[in-house]
Design a binder for these strands. Structure first.
Length: 812
DNA sequence: AAGCTTTTGATTTTT
DNA sequence: TCAAAAGCTT
């Protein structure tokens, strides 16, 4: 490598000894190659569980230890903050403090860092705010209404989706207009809305998530001397989960890895654009690029990820080296064989076979329930069995395709007193009260952001409705001032005295908070200023008072959430003593839920298959393995849909280390209707001998299913002859057109409503009757208050744990 | 402007 | 089913 800035360190490693010998310890030959290869471009095709994070972190460490790069010359990009945090931690373990100077971050936060520095180059200020999808939807909704576009079938959601898609392709309103069919009035309207949306963002000094990437690319292309600054700085770029990159992200990487042309030794010298002769030799060759990915795990095409970025890497970067990691260090061979078999049904992919040397392991367990509750009961029972066998709850996970499936699982888990935690789900920062509080902060940090102002102007209720808001907006437009500044002239707005007072008061509160959080230039705000300012805003605006006065029980929780946010601000100040209000807002906008993962200790994790990517568990329950669920019904119509669903299923399977359970239900209540479900086609793609069906779809079908599982729970092993051989002959699929009369037999045995046994007293020796499990004897009672759990040995259904308060039981 | 009732319609998700 | 959004009333 002709790296001109290669540092030479006195007293470096003695000649001959490899400085990175320990970094290669325990690595297989392919992994070693991935760590040590040096060249312009390297693609690491890393199958599931093949130790890619280890390879990536060691590669970085090896670059640093070999003095091939300064920390500041390394840019490592991941998709989530969690992944970035983990990577930083692991690099730190290898190289210590020097990890600090590196940029290890997500695409989005890397772009924010760049944009904050360069925003003034193109009409934004450093204090720009970031619109999340909710913010942009609100804005688009307003624009759709303004243009009366719903008459043409342009819903806010559709417009938002289309704009996002276009931005991921680096298109803007003008370039799209050139290709669009403008004789279609809906198209014309869309182009107008797109244009307006962009103008509104600019006016609000804001970027949406897609802009963070797209505008950075724009910046680099429009101002080559700016791009050169970053090209000089980042000499080694590493991208994780490359199969999930969209076109804009791809373009960003491309821009950053371009050679630096010309003699611009003073990058900002001329300010304008510099034209160079084409034949000029590059002053500095492009940065080295390492990407890691697995096209079989690409499950985000629906949000713009372009699988071609990885499949055509070698074409995009000629001379690229490709390293294939196929040895799996996570799962048993049975699990891997199932995964290989399933993914093998996808055509148009490079063949790749995961293998392991840990042995076959347990068979994959299959189970078919009569209803989703029945299925859930199986999962809960099995979780308990594993727990009794010594497996910690935190080593088990339950996956499902759609969030709505979690409900039935939760109901049963609560009853069975199994501690669980839902990953993903509603996010803290998406709660209304948190968004309100943040809008107050934004109103202070970026007064140009009208969205934030509109959000808070009537929260708490100040009697300001649409009419008044439009009056203010019109006044601001007439006077050529911002919405925020218009508030200072409440008397000139021509609104009622009551409203005038309210507006003046809000203005005063914002001013007071600004004095706390935004000190005069030259001064530095004390670290606590954000938390203090936030408290001022929440208290003096009357926001907290309104919640306290409310009789809605949820509002108490909202107050607690606000306290939590203040605590987050304090914590932020502790970790970033120099952190400003803007830094805090950036972190909060870009960081989803900080440490969801660590909280899961001692509980079973529930999550969607998408959320499961990148995680691993000893025991995995993949539930709802039914047609129309996985593959999801809607995916059938989309190009590449079924294949992506198969990859999703593959991702789910490969999360399991030792035990994998595939379960489904014969009937599923969806949208209030009970419908018959068919086993997923993916089940048939798993070789029969890898699976052991506790209850196969055939069993359930032949029996007609009037019994709830609870009554025949001990029947268990259906093996031997007959129904248990699902897969030999093609599955006896239940017919969809089954008469509705039959369905009632499957109706949920478990009522959706939670019953309350009040303070029923139970003790060891008591006999009880359970709606589903029949009679049994209490062995012991543990826990306290509402969480008392009875350990019951049922006469026919075996041992169960029951939450006394809500279990459908009576004392005999 | 705010509170009520009716209607609608419903993957997957990180930033 | 069930929550959110739209529509309607006061």
């Amino acid at each position: 490598m002709s790296d001109p800035i290669k540092p030479v360190i006195v007293g470096a490693t003695p000649a001959g000894a490899r400085p990175d010998e320990d970094l290669l310890e325990g690595l297989n030959p392919q992994q070693r190659e991935a760590v040590t290869y040096r060249g312009q471009a390297l693609l690491i095709v890393a199958g599931a569980g093949s130790g890619k994070t280890s390879v990536l972190t060691r590669r970085i460490a090896s670059l640093l230890r070999g003095r091939e790069a300064w920390p500041s010359q390394i840019l490592a990009i991941t998709f989530t903050n969690k992944a970035a945090g983990e990577m930083r931690e692991r690099v730190e373990q290898l190289v210590g403090d020097s990890a600090r100077g590196m940029w290890i971050s997500t695409f989005h936060s890397a772009c924010v860092r760049i944009l904050r520095r360069e925003a003034e180059q193109f009409g934004f200020t450093k204090s720009f705010t970031i619109y999340d999808s909710g913010d942009s939807r609100a804005l688009i909704k307003r624009l759709v209404k303004q243009h009366e576009a719903d008459a043409y079938g342009l819903t806010p959601a559709a417009v938002q989706g289309k704009i996002s898609k276009l931005k991921n392709e680096l298109a803007d309103a003008e370039s799209y207009a050139r290709t669009a069919n403008l004789s279609d009035p809906a198209e014309r309207l869309f182009v107008e809305i797109f244009g307006d949306y962009q103008r509104e963002l600019q006016k609000a000094n804001a970027f949406d998530f897609d802009d963070l990437i797209g505008q950075t690319v724009f910046l680099f292309r429009a101002f080559p001397h700016v791009a050169d600054v970053y090209r000089r700085r980042f000499r080694h770029i590493l991208v994780d989960e490359y199969q999930d990159t969209n076109h804009a992200q791809y373009a960003l990487i491309h821009e950053l890895t371009r050679p630096v042309v010309g003699a611009a030794s003073e990058p900002y010298a001329s300010g304008g654009m510099m034209i160079f002769e084409a034949d000029q030799a590059p002053e500095l060759e492009g940065a080295s690029l390492t990407v890691v990915g697995d096209s079989d795990q690409s499950i985000y095409a629906f949000r713009g990820a372009d699988i071609r970025n990885i499949s055509e890497f070698e074409r995009d970067f000629p001379g690229a080296k490709v390293v294939l990691l196929e040895q799996n260090y996570r799962s048993t061979q049975n699990i891997l064989s199932a995964a290989n078999a399933v993914i093998g049904h996808n055509f148009d992919r490079k063949d790749k076979k995961l293998w392991t040397d840990v042995g076959e392991g347990e068979k994959i367990v299959g189970f078919t329930g009569y209803s989703q509750h029945d299925e859930a009961q199986f999962v809960a029972d099995e979780v308990e069995t594993l727990r009794r066998g010594g497996l910690d709850y935190s080593q088990m996970a339950i996956f499902y395709r759609t969030n709505s499936q979690s409900r039935a699982l939760e109901e049963i888990l609560i009853r069975a007193a199994v501690p669980y935690k839902i990953m993903g789900g509603t996010k803290f920062y998406e709660r209304a009260e948190i968004k309100d509080a943040l809008a107050y902060l934004i109103a202070v940090a970026n007064p140009a952001d009208e969205m934030a102002m509109r959000r808070i102007i009537n929260r708490p209720r100040r009697g300001i409705g649409d009419v008044t808001i439009e009056t203010i907006a019109r006044y601001a437009a007439d006077e050529q001032i911002t919405f925020r500044d218009a508030l200072a002239n409440a008397t000139s707005l021509g609104v009622g005295p009551k409203i005038q007072t309210a507006i003046t008061h809000l203005d005063a509160v914002l001013v007071e908070a600004a004095e706390i959080m935004l000190p005069a230039s030259g001064e530095v705000a004390p670290p606590t200023s954000v938390a203090d300012g936030l408290n001022v805003l929440l208290n003096k605006s009357g926001y907290r008072d309104a919640l306290r006065a409310s009789k809605d029980a949820q509002d108490e929780a909202r107050l607690e959430n606000l306290d939590e946010l203040v605590a987050v601000a304090r914590e932020f100040a502790r970790n970033n003593p120099e952190g400003t209000l803007l830094d805090f807002l950036t972190e909060v906008s870009l960081v989803a839920d900080a440490d969801d993962l660590d909280d899961a200790s001692g509980s079973v994790s529930l999550m969607t298959l998408h959320t499961a990517k990148g995680l691993e568990y000893d025991a995995v329950f993949l539930t709802g393995v039914e047609e129309d669920l996985i593959p999801h019904r809607i995916s059938a119509g989309e190009p590449g849909g079924p294949q992506e669903e198969r990859r999703l299923f593959y991702v789910g399977i490969t999360r399991a280390r030792k035990r994998l359970y595939l379960s489904l239900a014969m009937t599923r209540a969806q949208f209030g209707e009970v419908s018959v479900a068919m086993p997923s086609r993916f089940l048939q793609e798993i070789p029969v001998d890898l699976m052991h069906w506790r209850q196969s779809p055939g069993d359930v079908n032949s029996r007609g299913g009037t019994q709830s599982r609870a009554l025949n729970a001990r029947r268990g092993f259906s093996g031997g002859s007959g129904g248990g051989r699902y897969g030999d002959d093609l599955v006896p699929l239940p017919r969809r057109e089954k008469p509705a009369g039959d369905l009632s037999q499957f109706a949920n045995r478990i009522p959706a409503k939670v019953r309350d046994n009040g303070d029923m007293v139970l003790g060891p020796g008591d006999r009880i009757r359970h709606d589903d499990f029949g009679e049994g004897r209490v062995d012991a009672v543990t826990g306290e208050g509402a969480k008392r759990v009875a350990h019951v040995r049922f006469d026919s259904a075996g041992a169960k744990k029951l939450l006394i308060k809500i279990a459908p039981i009576e004392k005999l």
